[in-house]
């Protein structure tokens, strides 16, 4: 998997680079409009992370250039300008997703993976770890080919864990991811605890070989047994 990160902010660029290297991606970076354009025109990528405000030009213009060059990479706009106009315009110009800063790495990861899966040939959208198979489109989960009935929130949680395997996920990150921006102010985490508890029990009962493990006070991690 090849990913191109076009981001002028050094700290951001390096963090993303480190993160996606850890996620076993081949990572390339560009720090401005021109270097981004030259890399895009020469190589092909599975995914492009694109900042809008770049030295030498707008990320939106880069999208137009890509269209002109007939490039079909999946593009996620990451921008500090959480402006409706940018979002609408970016999506119209061919971007696949829009993620305003600040975001969680796990969230970005989930979106990148989702995009890549969608673009993979064969159209197999499933995410599989060990004996657990999750079909995001059909919102169904199979353990050992047996369907595991989950409620809406439990499914969302499991999906989030499965696209971020072996990653320690913070509890507030999880809450936000599952309950969306609308309830982003909730740090009443009782509900998260009970949902995770239910999910764990169901997985265990079904004989799943993956486990959601609590890590100190920080959060949870999906591990294979």
């Amino acid at each position: 998997m090849k990913i191109l990160i076009i981001e002028d902010e050094k700290g951001m660029r390096e963090t993303l680079e480190t993160f996606f290297v850890q996620q076993k991606f081949v990572v390339e970076t560009a720090h401005d409009f021109d270097s981004g354009l030259s890399k895009l025109s020469v190589y092909d990528y599975d995914c492009v992370l694109l900042d809008i405000t770049l030295p030498g030009g707008s990320g939106l213009d880069l999208l137009t250039e890509m269209k002109r060059l007939n490039k079909r990479e999946s593009v996620i706009i990451i921008s500090a300008r959480d402006a409706i106009d940018d979002k609408v315009l970016g999506l119209e110009l061919g971007a696949d997703d829009y993620l305003p800063k600040p975001f969680h790495l796990a969230e970005l990861n989930a979106r990148v993976k989702s995009l890549i899966r969608r673009n993979q040939s064969g159209g197999d959208m499933s995410v599989s770890i060990e004996n657990v198979k999750l079909l995001p489109d059909k919102r169904t989960v199979f353990v050992n080919d047996e369907e595991l009935p989950l409620n809406r929130k439990e499914f969302d949680l499991l999906y989030y864990f499965m696209v971020n395997p072996d990653r320690l996920l913070n509890k507030t990150t999880l809450t936000e991811a599952v309950w969306g921006d609308n309830i982003d102010q909730a740090d009443d985490l009782e509900f998260l605890y009970s949902q995770v508890k239910n999910l764990r029990r169901k997985l265990k009962t079904a004989g799943a070989t993956i486990e959601i493990k609590a890590v100190y006070g920080f959060g949870y991690k999906l591990i294979s047994e």
């Binding site: 951001m12 993160f19 300008r81 975001f103 796990a106 990653r167």
Partner: peptide, 20 residues
């Protein structure tokens, strides 16, 4: 608030990396 977005993002993500 706009200017704060990027530094906040970086800090959050670096902490995330540290935790991991």
């Amino acid at each position: 608030s706009h200017e704060l977005q990027t530094p906040l993002a970086i800090s959050l993500n670096k902490l995330d990396m540290l935790a991991n």
